[in-house]
């Protein structure tokens, strides 16, 4: 029974992890930009949700929609006005830019919200499945995280914008020749990345305390998940996220909580050596 609980914990955490990573992976895969702001975007989404709950009494799962929209606008604007200027430069240039922007965003949040941990008091109770306990807020967060990831997958597959994003990822120059406005696609992609971060932040605010000091932790998780699952694809982030959730949960159980994070990084290192494309990544995006 204990094993079942540990696996259930891992799956619920893994779905949230997938949601954390999917936007980051998309931006990295399509734009070749490592968005250092991703962790701060998630926390910003979390704070917006928290304040909407605190002052306006809006349910966090409802607040998710406007919060995601705000983050989309922010992401679109940042990409369109700033990152697009250097987007075709080597990855180090864009990394430095997003790193700098992250410091600005982080410090503004620190100033405005203080680093005091805050939490949405939404305790929905729990589900008891024959001894395996599933906290309901985590269950809802898990399903929403999976739904969001699924929607993104469908959008990328079927919508015109989605196809344009995929086309730009495959061959930027050819896409431009086909009449795709590459800069706009970039801005939309970055916007979607931020949107996913914001939506995920809303989910995170229900499950974890929100504080600025964890932005780096989220970013680190996104990195590991991308490497484990494979870069630039929605299924890659999903597989990577759930894999990491399970790895951490099982390693924590068998080797103690100190080893949980270590195990995640170890598997990442091993994969980098034996399978640099990640579990289900395609060659060319490693």
């Amino acid at each position: 029974m204990e094993y079942a609980q540990v696996i259930a914990n891992g799956l619920m955490l893994g779905a949230i992890y997938a949601c954390i990573a999917v936007g980051f992976s998309l931006v990295w895969g399509v734009l070749n930009v490592i968005n250092m702001m991703h962790g701060s975007f998630i926390i910003l989404g979390g704070y917006l949700t928290f304040f909407a709950w605190l002052h306006l009494k809006i349910n966090p799962f409802v607040a998710l929609v406007p919060v995601a929209a705000v983050l989309f606008a922010l992401g679109y604007l940042i990409q369109y006005t700033l990152i697009n200027r250097v987007v075709s430069r080597p990855v180090l240039t864009t990394l430095t830019l997003t790193f700098g922007l992250d410091m600005i965003l982080y410090n503004f949040m620190n100033l405005g919200f203080t680093a005091t941990p805050r939490r949405v008091l939404l305790d929905l109770g729990r589900l008891d499945l024959g001894g395996v306990i599933l906290p309901l807020d985590r269950v809802v967060a898990m399903f929403l995280a999976l739904a969001l990831t699924g929607i993104l997958f469908v959008v990328m597959r079927t919508s015109r914008t989605g196809r344009a994003i995929v086309a730009v990822r495959m061959d930027r120059d050819a896409a431009a020749l086909m009449g795709i406005r590459v800069n706009r696609v970039y801005a939309i992609t970055f916007g979607i990345g931020a949107l996913m971060a914001g939506a995920c932040g809303a989910l995170v605010s229900v499950v974890f305390p929100i504080t600025t000091s964890v932005t780096g932790l989220f970013l680190g998780k996104a990195f590991v998940i991308c490497v484990i699952g494979g870069l630039g694809s929605v299924p890659g982030a999903l597989v990577g996220g759930i894999a990491l959730g399970l790895i951490e949960s099982l390693a924590g159980y068998f080797f103690g909580p100190q080893s949980a994070i270590l195990a995640g990084f170890l598997i990442m290192l091993i994969l980098l050596v034996v399978r640099p494309t990640g579990l289900i990544g395609k060659k060319g995006y490693e």
């Binding site: 204990e2 609980q5 540990v6 914990n9 619920m12 955490l13 974890f208 964890v214 932790l217 989220f218 680190g220 998780k221 951490e248 949960s249 924590g252 159980y253 103690g256 909580p257 100190q258 949980a260 994070i261 270590l262």
Partner: peptide
Amino acid sequence: MELYPVGALDLSTPISKIKA
């Protein structure tokens, strides 16, 4: 008697163990 690392985001595993 267990220790969790500084970068722990989630504590469900050690807490499940305590429950048992």
